[in-house]
Design a protein around this nucleic acid. Structure first.
Lengths: 206, 206
DNA sequence: ACTGTAATCAAACGTTTGTTTGAATCATAG
DNA sequence: CTATGATTCAAACAAACGTTTGATTACAGT
């Protein structure tokens, strides 16, 4: 078969992302994934070796984009005159929203990312920390410039809270139901606005 | 055997709570649970019917306590003169911290609770909403009294963010490592203080 | 002591899981 | 066209899962 324009490998990655986000890493079986991707079951082990490798590849594919966009946004803010806390927060939060609104399964990825935090899987968290850590540190430097009265420790605590709230919001963990008639796109944009306003005030707390 | 002072049922609940928190609902098998509880494998199905029922029972056992304590704390605040936003936040956050510092596996439970949100399991979320919802609504009323300039929708958005950040913090999702020499108890207390200060400012945002 | 219900136990049930195998098919370079 | 390496495929693998069974033990009320 292979009627699709995408390669077997790409089709597996796409289907895996969707199903992992929908049902979790454990519940989503390789049989479900390969069925959704219209490829043979053995193709996963042929192209990725193990399920664990497949999970990491799914992460890598999107995380690289997310990190790059965040860094670009941060640099743009830094090079603009008189930037504010809201601008930096926007540079941190907006790319996550944009990615979650990506045409093909970005929302699924953000839910998967949030799930990865919850899973408390140590190897996976190390992998995420390696790919996330330095970007977060770059942001911390800029935040510190805008909030010089905060100690380094205090700042890190607050940024951690922001990251938590963002993760939670992006993953649709919240109890707030999307109003009927509102698209997921609008819902996430609204969430971003509320989040930025809240986080800005929270970070500025005395 | 049954050398323990606890009944088979209680031993299963305790072991399940620990292992679910440690490895997740899927990964933690009934064989692991019953081995840790030193009971026969079939005891789970005998006492609880299914694994799903066991999960719900584990939740119920602690959630009832958490809800009761939150409501007590809220009523105490309401009956005191000149209570502030921080007091109400404290009534919401502190019981969660206390429970997570409970002698026997409270921390495990909070991690499990956070995981439940991540799992996106609809029946489980309905169960949580049924047990959590009305308490959250009670708090919302009091918050609204202190923040009358906020629309109901705006308030709910912000409370949702607070709940998210709290869940995240209590579950040790954060990237902030506990400093060596600090106990888990101190770490959580510190987290609570930072959380209350942050949330207070965030809720008060213009 | 006997009876009946509750609880425990070892063993097995039927599924589902991730992974492996070996043959079949495809694509491409000589 | 043919030979070669990459890919796909149906089938089977062993292991682990939640659940059920039927016999056995523990203990209560009469």
């Amino acid at each position: 078969m292979n009627t699709s324009q995408f390669s077997t490998k790409q089709r597996i990655l796409g289907a895996a992302e969707t199903l992992f986000a929908l049902h979790g890493f454990e519940k989503a079986s390789l049989r479900q994934v390969t069925a959704a991707a219209h490829v043979n079951l053995a193709a996963v082990n042929y192209h990725f070796g193990t399920k664990e490798n497949l999970i990491e590849e799914v992460f890598r594919r999107r995380l690289d984009r997310l990190n790059a966009r965040r860094q670009d946004a941060l640099r743009k803010v830094e090079h603009s005159p008189d930037y504010t806390l809201d601008h930096v927060l926007e540079a941190f939060i907006r790319p996550a929203i944009d990615l979650s609104l990506d045409q093909s399964g970005g929302g699924a990825f953000m839910r998967m990312l949030a799930r990865a935090y919850a899973e408390h899987d140590q190897p996976l968290r190390k992998f995420l920390s390696d790919n996330y850590g330095h970007v977060l540190r770059e942001f911390a430097v800029v935040f510190h410039r805008l909030l010089p009265h905060l100690s380094k420790e205090e700042l890190y605590w607050r940024l951690d809270i922001v990251a938590g709230a963002l993760t939670y919001a992006m993953a649709d963990f919240g109890l707030i139901k999307r109003r009927p008639g509102t698209t997921e796109r609008d819902h996430h944009k609204l969430a971003a606005e509320h989040l930025i306003r809240f986080a800005s005030a929270g970070l500025s707390a005395p």
